[in-house]
Computed example of a mutant assay.
Amino acid sequence: MSPDEYCQQKTVQSGSSFYYSFLFLPPERRRAITALYAFCREVDDTVDECTDESIARIKLAWWRTEVSTTYKATPTHPVMLALQPHLAVYNLKEEHLQAIIDGMEMDLNQTRYLDYKAMQNYCWHVASVVGILSASIFGVTDPKTLEYAEKLGLAFQLTNIIRDVGEDARKGRIYLPVNELQQFGVTAADLLNARHSDKFEALMAFQVARAQTVYDEAFALLPKQDRRSQRPGLMMAAIYRTLLSEIENDHFHVLTQRISLTPVRKLWLAWKTYVRN
């Protein structure tokens, strides 16, 4: 199996919505974004699938070294072998790849966030920086496009947090800001014990409204001349905003189930967005 095939398999197996937006890219950019996504999956799995925290930290340290090696010599992991040819072509910076690893390590260091600012910092490391790297691969002619991509990454991660509230709580992690839980009268125990209530629905309605606002703010930053090249991000936004609507229509029953869209619906939304842009 070649490095590119390894990355393709990793991406398909993840079942991520991102896969559908990759399908519309030219081959070279598709290989680059698939390798980047596979890298994100690898380092994320290092934390999520490792039950021993000390081993997870050792693995993340190995990935830090592997990333550094990729910019200086020949790496050993198939994901980095696949990503290496694209680093200079798309100006993918080492500091951004290292920042993603920092974000994964944050999951080992803390399981609560005091306020939205603290949660935003986490989101920047695990998502906004991925948005910047992805936009660079898609094609950028105006620096403002990277600001759009950074904000869009935040919107995506806010959506993930909303969708995965129950799943994350079962892992002992609560990303919703502590002060906002207090504001709506929802306790950490409510989330950990999957207690759905009117207060929880009000809290989640607030989270969804904020995420939708962040999407709007991101779109307002996207320069017209880069809109076509950035269509993959717009496709993902169409899928994720539809997911938010589904969660809202289901009265935010995310504590005991993971609400998702069917592959056919994701593909339809991606295609429709591609045609319109």
Rank of each mutant, 00 (worst) to 15 (best):
L97H: 02
N109M: 08
A88G: 03
H96M: 13
Y19E: 03
R112H: 11
D52Q: 13
I101L: 10
C50I: 01
H125C: 13
G103Y: 04
Q9E: 12
Q8E: 13
I33R: 02
T11Y: 04
P85K: 01
F138V: 13
H86S: 14
V89M: 07
S14Q: 02
R64V: 05
H96A: 08
S2G: 09
A35I: 11
T51D: 15
Y116C: 00
D102L: 06
M80C: 12
R57T: 00
C7A: 01
A61N: 14
Y37V: 12
E28C: 09
F22R: 09
D52L: 14
L36D: 06
K10L: 06
Y6M: 03
D44P: 09
V12C: 04
R64H: 10
T46E: 04
F22E: 06
L97Q: 01
V79N: 03
N91A: 09
Y122V: 05
C40R: 13
P26M: 01
H125L: 15
R57W: 14
E5A: 15
R30T: 05
V12E: 12
N121Y: 11
F22Y: 15
P3C: 04
A99E: 11
Q13D: 14
A61H: 08
S14F: 05
S17N: 14
W63C: 08
P75W: 10
E42Y: 00
R31V: 09
V129T: 15
E49F: 06
V89K: 13
G103K: 02
S128F: 02
H96D: 12
R64Q: 13
F138G: 00
I58M: 14
S136G: 10
Q8G: 08
F24W: 10
Y19H: 03
Q98R: 08
W62Y: 14
L87K: 03
E42A: 05
I55A: 09
I100Y: 05
D45S: 06
M80E: 08
Y122G: 04
F22K: 10
E66G: 10
Y116E: 15
S54D: 10
V67A: 05
T70F: 12
P75H: 08
E105D: 14
F39V: 06
L92E: 01
M106V: 14
K10F: 01
K10V: 02
V79T: 15
N121F: 04
K59M: 13
H125K: 15
L23S: 07
Q9N: 12
S134Q: 07
P75Y: 10
Y90H: 11
C50G: 01
E49G: 09
R57N: 07
E66C: 11
D142Y: 00
D4Y: 14
V140C: 07
T141A: 12
